[in-house]
């Protein structure tokens, strides 16, 4: 212990808060905890289930089948020459990752109040670990998508990946940042007023239909009222699902404007989420 001077305090706990008050050094010190949380999430989800991680596959596959039946067979939505099943699977795979990050992180404070009420560690470790452990699920779902992709490819379907594949990691990052940012904002707001948590499940469902998951932007431009089409187009999530399909299936459109627009919004939302989350973590236990 160094106690050279009387005033050399290591840190101070006080009621005053700064607007932006991050202790990155501290978060770094807890990196092992982050990975242990990730490991815990992955290992424990499907303990004592028979099918285990196979459950990760069943949900997107069935949803794609239903979407194909409803939107493409019944609703006649064009997919630009790509097999509708593959088209839907691509959209759902991308959407699922965002959705999982959002819904899981949005309940951080309420689901962890037991442990948060007893021990201190940088709270942000929790949503971060959720986002990272969801990557595994995303990876598995991406795998099944690629499996079907190969199947269709060898059957002679024209669905070529293009050079925009290089942007793939950035897209994953954007999805994570958007889900995490929104999730942190919602989790911070739900500590005092529970209304939002009721809204989340339902809003996410609706948001999916405004994010061009079961249809391409071109169809939205053509068939939606112009104002709604505008909303769909400027929804950053639309840019992600569309871009995701574009790089894998070479269908739809890609603009650099849309790309950077989405990137900036993701980063901004993430930072706002971080600030709000950080402000809440100090005293949420009194109100949760």
């Amino acid at each position: 212990m160094n106690t050279k001077h009387k005033d050399e305090w290591l840190y101070t706990i006080s009621s005053k808060r700064k607007l932006i008050d991050f202790n990155f050094k501290e978060i770094w010190r807890y990196k092992d905890l982050l990975f242990l949380f990730v490991k815990r999430d992955i290992v424990t989800v499907y303990k004592q289930t028979v099918l285990g991680p196979l459950w990760y596959l069943i949900q997107p596959l069935f949803t794609s089948v239903i979407f194909t039946l409803v939107f493409n067979n019944l609703g006649n939505i064009g997919t630009g020459g790509v097999p509708p099943f593959l088209f839907n699977l691509a959209g759902i795979t991308a959407w699922n990752y965002f959705k999982e990050c959002l819904t899981k992180t949005s309940s951080t404070f309420t689901t962890n109040k037991g442990i948060f009420g007893k021990v201190y560690f940088p709270r942000v470790v929790m949503p971060l670990s959720i986002t990272i452990s969801n990557l595994l699920k995303f990876g598995i779902q991406l795998g099944i998508f690629l499996g079907f992709y190969c199947f269709y490819f060898f059957q002679g379907t024209e669905a070529n990946m293009n050079q925009h594949m290089l942007l793939f990691p950035v897209y994953v990052l954007m999805m994570a940042l958007l889900g995490l940012g929104l999730g942190m904002i919602i989790s911070a707001l739900t500590t005092k007023y529970r209304d939002l948590s009721i809204l989340v499940g339902f809003a996410v469902q609706l948001l999916m239909y405004l994010s061009a998951v079961p249809y391409p932007i071109s169809e939205a431009r053509e068939k939606f009222p112009s104002k709604v089409a505008l909303i769909v187009e400027y929804n950053p999530l639309t840019q992600i699902t569309e871009g995701f399909r574009y790089m894998f299936l070479d269908t739809g459109t890609f603009t650099w404007f849309g790309f950077f627009y989405t990137l900036i919004i993701s980063i901004a939302l993430f930072l706002i989420g971080l600030v709000i989350f950080n402000r809440t973590e100090k005293s949420f236990i009194d109100t949760v």
Binding site: Y11, I13, S283
Partner: peptide
């Protein structure tokens, strides 16, 4: 233990 913050006052620690 920093689980909640005080309404007023300060705790200093080395």
């Amino acid at each position: 233990s920093k689980v909640t913050s005080p309404t007023t006052g300060e705790i200093k620690t080395k």
